[in-house]
C-alpha cells in the first residue's frame, strides 16, 4: 500500500476500535470454545472398578468443562444456532466410515405388486445429485442402536393394547428385518437392535415422497450395508463372508 493512499483514510476513532476489538475477539473466542467443547477421541481408558462405566474400554471424552459450560449455556442456543455456524470442524471426512451403504426402494401398487425398483445412489444420476443421494444413504448407515433394557414387564391399561416395539430380527447371517413385536414377546428377553428414530423418520419421509412422485400405493426400503474394507485386508484378507452385504428390510410403508 502506498503511503499516499493511506493518508487519504480518516483515522478510526479509539472508541470504535475498542468496540470492534471486543466484538471480534468475543466472536472468535466463542467459535474457538465451541470447537473445543466437542467430544474428542475415541480414546482408550482404564479407570478400574467403579459403578458408572466399564472399568476399561474405548470411549469418547467430553471437552473441558469451562468450554462446555459456555457452549451449552450460551454459545449454542444464542449464537451459533441462530447464525447457523453449528459445525464444530471435527470433519466426518477425517474419519473412516464403519459401513458403506446403498439402498433399494420397491414401489408397489394396491395389490402389492412391485411397480418399480429404484436404487440409491443412482448410478445414472449426475455427480451432484448422486453426491446428495450418497449422503442420504450414509444417514441410514449401521450400526443400529442397541435396544435399551425393557425394565419391568409392562401391563396394558384397561381396554387398551400395549404399544408394539419395532426391533431388528435376524433371519440369517446376512438378512434382518424390522418387525413390530408385542411388549410381552419372548424375543424381547434377548438383546436386540432397533432402528434409530432418525433413520426411521428419514425412511418414512423418503418413502412418502417416492410414493407421491411415482403414484405408488406403498413402498419398501431395503438397506444394503458392508463393513468398510481395511488396509489390513491387503495383508490378510478377511473371509469371503465379510465382503457380503447385510440386507436390512425396513418394512412396507404406506403414505
Amino acid at each position: 500500500m502506498s503511503p499516499s493512499s493511506t493518508a487519504r483514510a480518516r483515522p478510526f476513532p479509539l472508541g470504535l476500535q475498542v468496540a470492534c476489538s471486543v466484538l471480534a475477539v468475543g466472536h472468535l473466542l466463542l467459535i474457538g470454545l465451541f470447537a473445543l467443547a466437542q467430544d474428542s477421541g475415541p480414546w482408550w481408558y482404564d479407570v478400574g472398578p467403579n459403578d458408572v462405566m466399564p472399568p476399561s474400554g474405548v470411549n469418547h471424552s467430553p471437552g473441558p468443562v469451562f468450554a462446555r459450560a459456555i457452549t451449552v449455556n450460551f454459545t449454542e442456543p444464542y449464537y451459533v444456532v441462530p447464525l447457523r455456524m453449528t459445525h464444530n470442524y471435527h470433519f466426518q471426512s477425517n474419519r473412516r466410515p464403519d459401513y458403506s451403504v446403498y439402498f433399494e426402494v420397491f414401489l408397489k401398487n394396491e395389490r402389492g405388486d412391485v411397480l418399480r425398483t429404484l436404487k440409491f445412489p443412482d448410478d445414472k444420476a449426475s455427480f451432484w445429485v448422486r453426491h446428495r443421494q450418497e449422503i442420504l444413504a450414509q444417514n441410514l448407515s449401521p450400526p443400529d442402536q442397541q435396544m435399551p433394557p425393557r425394565g419391568n414387564e409392562k401391563v396394558a391399561a384397561g381396554g387398551k393394547d400395549l404399544p408394539k416395539v419395532e426391533i431388528w430380527v435376524r433371519e440369517d447371517a446376512h438378512t434382518k428385518r424390522l418387525k413390530p413385536v408385542e411388549e410381552t414377546d419372548d424375543l424381547l428377553r434377548e438383546s436386540h437392535e432397533v432402528a434409530s428414530p432418525w433413520a426411521k423418520t428419514l425412511v418414512k419421509s423418503y418413502l412418502r415422497y417416492l410414493c407421491r412422485e411415482h403414484g405408488a400405493a406403498s413402498a419398501e426400503l431395503v438397506r444394503y450395508s458392508r463393513r468398510t474394507v481395511l488396509p489390513l485386508d491387503l495383508y490378510a484378507p478377511r473371509p469371503e463372508d465379510t465382503f457380503k452385504e447385510l440386507k436390512s428390510y425396513f418394512g412396507e410403508m404406506k403414505p
Binding site: 459401513y99 458403506s100 446403498y102 463393513r227 485386508d233 484378507p237 465382503f243
Partner: peptide, 12 residues
C-alpha cells in the same frame, strides 16, 4: 478403495 466396489479378489 470404496468398500462397495472392493472384493476379496481385488484386494488380493
Amino acid at each position: 478403495n470404496p468398500t462397495l466396489q472392493a472384493t476379496r479378489e481385488s484386494l488380493i
